[in-house]
């Protein structure tokens, strides 16, 4: 009797703990500081560019609320994304400026002299005292912007500096910058079908101690639409993937060089689904190969 009661009590204690362990986001360190970030973040390209539409702004704020509730931290945007920065700022204001936010933005102007003013305008739109991460968007005028960003970091006006590219463009230049400049982050496109970065950029990031943000994890939704025509393989359950989105995300964030993937969405259900892909079990190398091979065949 006493033994049965003790087992019941232990089960009651352990169940929530193990459930928490399964839903708590896995984190990875930023190599240059050791600060840990959840492996799934939130992108804002297209999805957050809703202008001043009150209904759509409500939806974006709901997505942000769910994102933080699920343990999310990294939100990424750019002055190129239309009204997205303003919409993020609006959402952050409604949520009472969540202390866990890791704000990642970009400088995107061909004029080196115009960089500081653009950054200040972006900061004002986000309504944050300073950005955690500033990146040179798509390497645009990087020779001029990067020294400015590094100077801002030295002065404590931004915590980390990085560069971005997408869809496999200018990889040679990205490698040169990674090898020669003291950047903290590189943002690239990586997913189960766009795997060019596995050859040189991801190994270089590990060697140089550079954190990796991954954009376009679903190829702007096209990859999801493509694979969703097929049944989710039964072995997905072995790594806790209950949907194609989770399987694709788990593939990305299980690469040891990846710090955080930033899928964009305007739906609460999707942000929850994405965040939960960044928790629990991740595929080992053999399973990663199986996922890539399976998706290639579809």
């Amino acid at each position: 009797m006493i033994r049965a009661m003790a087992m019941a009590a232990a089960a009651a204690l352990l169940r929530p703990l193990s459930a928490r362990a399964l839903t708590a986001p896995v984190t990875r360190p930023i190599p240059s500081s050791g600060e840990r970030l959840p492996v799934v973040g939130l992108g804002t390209w297209i999805t957050f560019n809703v202008g001043d539409d009150p209904e759509l702004r409500d939806e974006c704020a709901a997505v942000m609320r769910a994102f933080f509730r699920e343990g999310g931290r990294v939100i990424d945007s750019s002055p190129m994304y239309g009204s997205s920065q303003e919409v993020i700022g609006d959402g952050l204001g409604r949520l009472g400026r969540p202390p866990d936010l890791f704000s990642a933005d970009k400088v995107w102007t061909s004029s080196g002299a115009g960089g500081p003013a653009q950054i200040e305008e972006s900061r004002s739109s986000w309504r944050v005292p300073r950005f955690d991460l500033l990146q040179v968007h798509n390497l645009l005028a990087w020779e001029e912007h990067l020294p400015d960003l590094l100077a801002m970091k030295a002065e404590g006006r931004v915590r980390y500096v990085g560069i971005t590219t997408s869809e496999g463009r200018r990889h040679r230049e990205v490698e040169e910058i990674m090898a020669s400049r003291p950047i903290d982050f590189v943002q690239i496109t990586y997913n189960a079908v766009d795997r060019a970065v596995e050859r040189r950029i991801l190994p270089l990031a590990r060697d140089r101690g550079i954190a990796v943000l991954v954009n376009r994890p679903f190829r702007q939704g096209a990859l999801i639409r493509h694979v969703e025509r097929h049944r989710l393989p039964s072995w997905s359950g072995e790594i806790g993937a209950a949907s194609w989105a989770q399987l694709l995300l788990k593939f990305i964030v299980s690469h040891p060089a990846v710090t955080c993937a930033i899928p964009a969405t305007a739906k609460v259900a999707h942000v929850v689904e994405n965040m939960r892909a960044g928790a629990g079990v991740f595929p080992e190398p053999a399973m990663r190969r199986r996922i890539a091979a399976h998706i290639e065949r579809l």
């Binding site: 390209w45 297209i46 999805t47 560019n49 809703v50 202008g51 539409d53 209904e55 759509l56 190129m80 994304y81 239309g82 869809e167 496999g168 463009r169 200018r170 702007q220 305007a266």
Partner: peptide, 22 residues
């Protein structure tokens, strides 16, 4: 650079829903 790698969707900044609600 690498202009041939761009598609129309690379220049799209908003969703159909946002546009038609506008």
């Amino acid at each position: 650079p690498e202009w041939w790698t761009y598609t129309l969707s690379d220049f799209l900044l908003f969703s159909p829903r946002t546009y038609y609600r506008l």
